[in-house]
């Protein structure tokens, strides 16, 4: 099967003044459609960096990133933004909801950026919130929601746009074990029911127990 995401000899070196810090060293990885994959490893192993590079959020120092058979690492800023908007969903560790928008408006935000008509985006956003059990909180602002509820709204935001792939950076890191577990179950259900490809960075063992595949990273390389 043709991989939906692929990186080849991917390297990333962070440079501060004259000090160079390698974050990734020649990583090769393929993600198949519908996979539920975790990038695991200790802090500083390069999980988030790899996730960011795969999502077009950052540029590699060397190597290639392919999305759906198209090489994207050389894309311009505008093309990368367009690509993220129409193909990828993101869930961040710190929820990163927009505080002046309600849960429903946050969930519909990507659809608004796409220019979808109001009714259509509201319907999709509500459905996504409902899937995650957040329909009753649709008109609350983020500061009126718990951490777990905010993270579910963040997932709904990624889900409402119906992307091919959702990339999640430590989605359960700020949640208590019960809420984290519930969120993992939600993601797993979505993966199975809708065939969405999920790639996580995590060191949460509860999440690792429930994934199809674990890619372990150590010192910027995939561990054998």
């Amino acid at each position: 099967m043709k991989p939906v995401l692929q990186v080849k000899e991917l390297s990333k070196i962070y440079k501060v003044d004259t000090v160079e810090t390698p974050a990734l060293r020649g990583v090769n990885l393929e993600i198949q459609p519908g996979e539920f994959t975790a990038l695991a490893g200790p802090s500083g192993s390069g999980k988030s960096t790899l996730l960011h590079l795969m999502g077009g959020l950052d540029r590699p120092t060397a190597g290639e990133v392919w999305l759906d058979g198209v090489r994207i690492d050389g894309f311009s800023k505008t093309r990368l933004a367009h690509l993220r908007l129409w193909n990828l969903g993101f869930v961040f560790q710190a929820y990163n909801l927009i505080p002046v928008l309600t849960a429903l408006e946050n969930a519909a935000f990507v659809l608004e950026l796409r220019g979808e008509p109001r009714e259509a985006r509201e319907e999709k956003a509500l459905r996504a919130l409902e899937t995650l059990g957040m329909k009753d909180f649709a008109h609350r602002r983020p500061n009126q929601l718990s951490g777990g509820q905010q993270q579910r709204v963040a997932v709904a935001r990624a889900l409402a746009a119906q992307p091919k792939i959702i990339l999640a950076d430590e989605p359960t890191a700020n949640l208590d074990s019960k809420t984290g577990l519930a969120l993992i179950e939600h993601l797993r259900t979505l993966n199975r029911a809708q065939g969405i490809t999920f790639v996580f960075s995590t060191h949460d063992p509860r999440l690792l127990e429930r994934v199809d595949r674990i890619v372990r990273l150590e010192d910027g390389q995939i561990a054998a």
């Binding site: 505008t78 933004a81 367009h82 993220r84 129409w86 990507v110 950026l113």
Partner: peptide, 8 residues
């Protein structure tokens, strides 16, 4: 975040 979500 807004840029990451796809705002050009």
């Amino acid at each position: 975040v807004i840029v990451a979500l796809g705002a050009g």
